[in-house]
Write a protein that binds this DNA or RNA. Sequence first.
DNA 1: ATTGTATAGTTACCTAGGTAACTACTTTGC
DNA 2: GCAAAGTAGTTACCTAGGTAACTATACAAT
Lengths: 140, 140
Amino acid sequence: MSFHNGFFHHNLQFSRSFTKKLNEQLAKVDLFHSQWLIVYYLNQFGCSTLVEISNYLDVEKPTVTRTVNRLEERDLIEQIPGKDKRERRIQLTESGVKTFQEAKKVVEEFEHQLMSGLAEEELEVTQRTLNFLKEKLKQS
Amino acid sequence: MSFHNGFFHHNLQFSRSFTKKLNEQLAKVDLFHSQWLIVYYLNQFGCSTLVEISNYLDVEKPTVTRTVNRLEERDLIEQIPGKDKRERRIQLTESGVKTFQEAKKVVEEFEHQLMSGLAEEELEVTQRTLNFLKEKLKQS
DNA sequence: ATTGTATAGTTACCTAGGTAACTACTTTGC
DNA sequence: GCAAAGTAGTTACCTAGGTAACTATACAAT
């Protein structure tokens, strides 16, 4: 199997298309998908450091720094003083929680619509395959 | 099913990880993966316009313009005069064909290594699922 | 033939990912 | 207790995707 008109090519196209459409939807609540990922994480896990976010999302630290700065400028997150002076511990503000709740509805509806018509079994196989490939990439 | 610890999140992580590793491999022949996509296309379909490339790769025109400019600066492609003065018809140079051949080996080895251990059937289901989702995104 | 519309490509500017190199702080080892 | 190593985060700069608005050319309709 060749790269083109093949598996990986389509997967990349799907990913691009997906984030594009998700950004369109999230524009309703004035968020970008990268911001949504961090807002979601903070809502679920509470107060965190940038490294924790970086590890969870599997995104490099400079990228996290930039997105977190944007969220802070918009007062969706706030800093918490901590013991370790190197760390930047952040959490959602009240406004951030509110935005999360609005965004959650938008994302869930978007996902639900996209998923409808897909067999549960096919989804499982796909997820297992992608995880297999992801793990294999980590090793190499 | 929720977005996080869910299907789409993992798919995006996989895509990022994949392009990252592919770029590492393609560095051997001094190419980036976006350049490789265009070089591959030109080798397969011959002399083309930027719009044709844009449609095939499902990437917006400005992005294609930029990547093509890089390829031209490196003398991997050359312009061909045509009837329609709006068009920019390009093809691989001799050096471009040579680079394609070298890159092809690198990419094929990378893909083959990644694919090994995956059942043919699982791969088919995965590809079908991704295509289904991709088509659904186009409609929405 | 002229006028309006469609198309090819570019420019400017935005988000989003990456690496390399750096600062500031913490921890560890002797 | 001090020097070395490790860690958190930032800065600068690169590729790579996107949109909006623009120019220049081609085509179509009246």
